[in-house]
Nucleic acid binder design. Structure first.
Length: 189
DNA sequence: GCTGCGATTATC
DNA sequence: ATAATCGCAGCG
């Protein structure tokens, strides 16, 4: 069943963990969420909206939970977040690693420009195990920024899959974030 | 207007 | 370990 607004308007660390094992649906794609990171603007120097920094880029993060925040990083990759909490809070969950469930043929073309049959082992292993790889694989771009997760073509559903143990660790590539760099807000299984 | 850099990835 | 590559924030 599709997750409703009330799922997202909760504590960001809780949402980040409960998103594990859920299925992200985007048009004809379905992928299982395997790794997430929480970002909480109020106390998190790694967050784009740290210190309530409202800019053109971060405005979506200040919405009520349940929207997609898509941003471009390093001039060449898109990353997808799910906005969490109450309006004005400025928090969200980065989707880092997913496992494709359907439509593999189209994913290989989007990601590598090749048919699935000729993909090598390395390409298969690294298909969608990163935030930029996820967006490339599913063709998620800036056009999707601000889109509602309660809509027809973009949402998260619970298909009954159970995650047994959630691993926790420090978030990736935020060494500049001082004390926040040590927060164990990365979750995976 | 100009400058510097990043919640990444692929390759060396 | 490092290049690729560009939107945008910060400055003034």
């Amino acid at each position: 069943m599709k997750l409703q607004k009330s799922f997202y308007i909760r504590d960001t660390l809780l949402v980040a963990q409960e998103l594990l094992g859920k299925v992200l649906v985007y048009h004809d794609f379905k992928v299982r969420i395997r790794e997430t990171e929480a970002y909480i603007g109020a106390i998190d120097k790694a967050a784009h909206c740290y210190g309530n920094k409202m800019t053109k880029r971060t405005s979506v993060m200040f919405r009520e939970g349940g929207s997609a925040y898509i941003y471009m990083i390093y001039g060449m990759h898109y990353c997808m977040n799910i906005v969490t909490g109450n309006a004005g809070e400025g928090s969200g969950v980065l989707i880092r690693n997913v496992e494709p469930l359907v439509n593999l043929d189209e994913i290989f073309v989007n990601r590598y420009g090749i048919s699935r049959e000729i993909a090598n082992k390395y390409q298969i292993k690294n298909l969608t195990n990163g935030p930029g790889k996820l967006c490339k694989s599913l063709n998620i771009t800036k056009k999707d920024n601000g889109h509602s997760l309660l809509s027809e073509n973009l949402y998260v559903e619970d298909d009954g899959y159970k995650v047994d143990y959630i691993h926790k660790g420090k978030r990736i590539n935020i060494d500049y974030a001082e004390e926040a760099a040590d927060f164990e807000w990365r979750f995976f299984y």
